[in-house]
Amino acid sequence: MADEKQQRVQTAANPGVDRREFFLRLGLGSMGIAAAGTAVFAYQFLSPNVLYEPSPVVNMGKPESYQLDSVTLDVDARIFVVHNNEGFFALSAVCTHLGCLTAWKPDLGIIACPCHGSKFAMFQPPGKKPGEKFDGPAPKPLPWLKMWLSDEGELIVDRSEEIRPEQFVRV
């Protein structure tokens, strides 16, 4: 192009930035801002604001319906409700490895994942807290979930809130 060869005149007020350079920067800068805005817009558009998903808070019924030393899997809520000597607690039933639904093995006293063979402690093996992983690829223990008694005396579990292990609900 012919204008490429034209000598660039640097103004005294703006050494190093001539008019061409200024407009180039202006153009690239505004395009950069527009691109950033588009990225934010795209992210917002792609994240749904309203989700028609089930509530994380579930009612697990009366404590009396759970026998002592029992582990109950609620497949819809995808949690275990456990009743032992120290009280009640709720454990997520979703494997921390890749989200498969784990199963309670009463004869072994453990929780096992069918997908990649992770095993989590319950009553066995000795010395492990319930939910702790003792075999397989799962990176984290099964989380304990917040549980409390409602005014009507029913067990309520908030599946979105994890708590420190060994916090029991005593009735």
Binding site: R78, C100, P114, C115
Partner: peptide
């Protein structure tokens, strides 16, 4: 069925 994981998946 989210409440039943086939074995093996």
């Amino acid at each position: 069925d989210a409440s039943h994981t086939p074995n093996p998946a």
